[in-house]
Design a protein around this nucleic acid. Structure first.
Lengths: 194, 194
DNA sequence: ACAAAGTAACTATGGATATAGTTAGTTGGC
DNA sequence: GCCAACTAACTATATCCATAGTTACTTTGT
């Protein structure tokens, strides 16, 4: 059900077409919530049906049209209810930790290779997160900038600070993963030599 | 697909009935992989059908019987293939970070309340993880002990060290979450006063 | 003797998610 | 003038996962 609220959150910044939403999801918003467009388009339709969004047909080129989704008052109210409601605790389900617990079933070379892949992934994540954080701090982030233009300075300050806070959490998490991976290299070294 | 390998991993320790597996999942193994029994029983059946497990009917009381699942050589081979294969990178999908990014939509009191709930959850997690880690180090953990009895000292050392390593990662993650939550309290204080 | 708690093994249903397409119009480069 | 890349909006299928039951037998406490 969080997809629905991720979509409202995104659309409070500015009205968007399904395609825009899909692009936003695969770039910046994907850091906090990933979704493929096969989920996004149907969900946008359902949300319009449920009155959380309205759509406006916008011309595109000569013949084409595109649907631009706007958050309704009901949608915003629904979002606030969700924002105020307690969070259901996350289930632990991470294949990386499951694998690590049974690394003794794999060859040391394979373990090192997998650690390298995880390291590359998290380093890339970290770079992206730090880059995005910088665009939040200087308020150049496109979606954020669109939303800020509708707010007064006090409200803008809150919006920016909480977003930076969320990214700080993600960055801390990425660093923790990288530290764990570094420990993994050291452990393989200790147990199997270099 | 990881559920299948989590099940094989568990059953390499000792043969178990579906019920045993379900209990293990809701206690110790749930730290790395959660699954309800509505997933476990059908998956065990499919795995038996696919030749990864065999089952032995064991009498239970006067009239009852129970099915004890054993990992087959094919199952172990399949597990090793998975253990050696690269890990698909994680999708980020965490409602806590999504919410945090939009805390300005919620009342400060509600934010504090949600932070408190998250804090309680992660403190409890941390306690459990540290408790389980201790039973791994002193080799008193039941599932681990069962597996160790089939291994020589060198193999046992590897099995223990990697399991402790996995738990160290989970513990570090829990601590990172708690530090982030503490920063959240400080931020709410700064932005809205106490 | 009986009830409560525990053990065992499921099923049913709906929603969430991943993977992989499809159809059609638009823009920019050569 | 045409092709590649991009924009737009999907659909189809299968699996994963969560919630909430059901049935039936066993052990333990009183």
């Amino acid at each position: 059900m969080s997809l629905r609220y991720a979509l409202i959150a995104l659309l409070t910044g500015r009205p968007m077409t399904g395609y825009d939403v899909s692009k936003s999801f695969s770039s910046s918003v994907a850091h906090v919530w990933h979704a493929p467009d096969s989920q996004i388009y149907p969900e946008l339709n359902r949300m319009e049906r449920d009155g959380l969004l309205t759509s406006v047909e916008v011309p595109w080129g000569k013949k084409g049209t595109k649907k631009e989704y706007h958050v309704t008052d009901a949608g915003l109210a629904d979002f606030r209810v969700w924002m105020e409601s307690p969070l259901v605790p996350q289930r632990q389900r991470d294949p990386a930790y499951l694998k690590a617990a049974y690394f003794d079933f794999a060859a040391p070379g394979s373990v090192r290779e997998q650690l390298r892949q995880q390291q590359a992934y998290w380093e890339e994540q970290l770079r992206m997160l730090e880059g995005t954080r910088a665009t939040l701090v200087d308020r150049s982030h496109p979606t954020l900038a669109a939303r800020l233009s509708k707010l007064n300075e006090r409200e803008a300050e809150l919006a920016v600070r909480y977003k930076v806070y969320a990214y700080d959490g993600l960055i801390a998490r990425a660093r923790t993963e990288l530290a764990w991976i570094a420990d993994g290299f050291a452990l393989v070294e200790e147990l199997h030599g270099s």
